[in-house]
Design a protein around this nucleic acid. Sequence first.
DNA 1: AAATTGACTGAGCAATCAGTCAGTTTGTAG
DNA 2: CTACAAACTGACTGATTGCTCAGTCAATTT
Lengths: 193, 193
Amino acid sequence: MSKKQAILLNATKLFSQKGYKDTSMAELAKRTGSAGSTIFYHFKTKEALFLSILKNVRETIITDFNRYLKESRFENGLEMVEGAISFYLACAGRMEDQFRLLHRHYPHELAQANPLCRQHLEAIYECFIDMFAQAIGHGQKDGSIGILSARKTALIIFSMVDGLVRFNTYNLYDAGSLYDEVIESCRKMLKNS
Amino acid sequence: MSKKQAILLNATKLFSQKGYKDTSMAELAKRTGSAGSTIFYHFKTKEALFLSILKNVRETIITDFNRYLKESRFENGLEMVEGAISFYLACAGRMEDQFRLLHRHYPHELAQANPLCRQHLEAIYECFIDMFAQAIGHGQKDGSIGILSARKTALIIFSMVDGLVRFNTYNLYDAGSLYDEVIESCRKMLKNS
DNA sequence: AAATTGACTGAGCAATCAGTCAGTTTGTAG
DNA sequence: CTACAAACTGACTGATTGCTCAGTCAATTT
């Protein structure tokens, strides 16, 4: 593995586990097994390194999402929503570090000042929220889901599922043991009656 | 106002807006209009200052909660849940800084190592989650809410509502415009059918 | 062989950090 | 007034921060 890749890999872990400010470039260099200045050879500033990581996260998520879209088939829209929730939770489990990074305050604060950062964040969130909204839209066409605002309901479901992931990260509650109840709750929320 | 109170007030704002590490005691002193060492006269360390603030947050929330309990009366459990959601959102609006502080990673990370911090956090979360669980329990007794795990459903509702508050903080979506849909979703989720 | 490149390094910089300490001011009780 | 403690301050420290820079080295191009 090249030094640059090693830096990116270790920086992702450090930024997600300790936060932006608490991650020192000296420690990152030590973990990577390189000189401190090597980091600044590959990345102009600490912030540029962070943006590079965020770009990686975005690309990984979008790739994962596209693969999921191709592979999955559902009987109706309601099942599609359930599939989307499963995908989100699986995604968060598979990419624990990356999701913890997104859940930190720093990327959102940087997004206020840095358009590129905002682009990355919006692309990631839009990907997930749109996934829910599309599924709801399908469900409304095939009659498995009742009349409601697809977009707003998508935001509510996202908020719900993302909260579970946070429960996990903070060791407040095991998200897995809530899975069945979340699916059941959504079904009741959405079902055409 | 005493210097100590001024320090606490400004520190709450700074910690919530900039985060723990990004808040420098020098800047806090400047804003408070006192010498840097005055902070360390009143609070032994930066961490002790933070814990003092967290204790304040806990006490404020519990007080607010008790007042709410006394003042409010509901027809049935389902309406009680809706009232609880309103209370949570109102609370988050009234104490924006304090809620942003709770949403940061630092208190949760400190809680892993510091029992006192964990106590404060657990008291705060338990207050809200129990509020939802109790309301659900009442609803199940009076028949307005169906058969489901009160505690688990309370966690799901909390996760949902807390996510809305986060949407607001990060300027991703206006929580107010989602309010009606959230209430409607919960009603469907809980209703006895 | 000479020139050029990209990857990498060690030494060191100015700035900032939380925290200390000796000493001064302030309030209050006798 | 004196006495005394609590409140407060400015000057300071050692450690750490992100970042710079001159220069080394191996591989590639001319």
